[in-house]
Amino acid sequence: MNLAFDLLLIAALLWSAGRALTTPDLFRAVVLFIVFGLLMALAWARLDAPDIALAEAAIGAGLTGALLLDALGHLRGPVRRKSGLIAPSTVMSSEGAGPPAFPTYFLNGLAIVLAVALGLALAGALLLLPEPAISLPREVAAAMDASGVAHPVTAVLLNFRGYDTLLEVAVLWLALLGVLAVAGGRAPGRAPVTPRSARASLKVPRLLARVLAPLALLVAGYLLWAGAHQPGGAFQAGAVLAAAAVLLNLAGLLPGGATPRWVLRAGLGFGLLVFLAVAAAVMGQGVLLQYPPAWAGALIMLIETGLTLSIGLTLAGLFLALSGASRQ
């Protein structure tokens, strides 16, 4: 029964990935990409990795999908790809409704051959992986008592490999700075101006957004708290917060804009600053981000709370900066 489900899931994954790449309609491609993300989340859940499943559903399918749909909205008129696989700009040279020119066929064939070769090489590398000298899961299990939390993923992310997470948060923050630099320079956002006829149609989604936003806040708080002993944590909680912000923005209740005011800016940097402050405070332990065992749990919760806020604002900012910049 489970095998049948898994095979069906794999087939659906391959199908949605293939269709997303080859369909000539960009809107359909985006929808198929979102479907692919949701199926991928299911696959992670089947692989007993609920942490990744949550992140994939929230960020891979949800937020990326919203960004892609928003980007599609900026491309005026119906956008069609001439052919799958190759990006439109490359195919533009072969104007006309006839069959694709010879180089397109050749490039597509080459791309397929290379992709299959890479896939086989990766599969081979995975299958031929030597037995690791150190069993990391066993090491983690042995050190769990000193980590301050009861969930191994959280222990690795915020204690044993805390510096990885510190740098990841910095990278995320830099990504948003990049987006703001590109989209920036506009006045602080107002709620998008919509014609009267469209405003009437916003009533229903507005009601939904007003119901869902408080619930999303509750779920984010729960995920943050749950991260200490079960799947959850700052990234998932932050992604849920960001989803609530995007929903409020789409319903016209939250202005977008590429020039955040100082409160927002402080919020964006807050998590990273808390993380850095904790890292600086425990430097005396000799190793970067090695917490005193008695304080580990509280410090991790402190960092995760700050990170939830900042990750939520950053992920939401990636969407709001771009959507707000365009509608004014």
């Binding site: 149609s201 229903v204 989604p205 009601l207 939904l208 119901v211 869902l212 619930l215």
Partner: peptide, 19 residues
């Protein structure tokens, strides 16, 4: 929640199609 989302999305799709 699924009811609320489904009703909202159905309304939006139908409204857009009508307009």
């Amino acid at each position: 929640l699924a009811l609320a989302a489904s009703a909202t999305v159905s309304f939006l799709v139908a409204h857009r199609a009508w307009r």
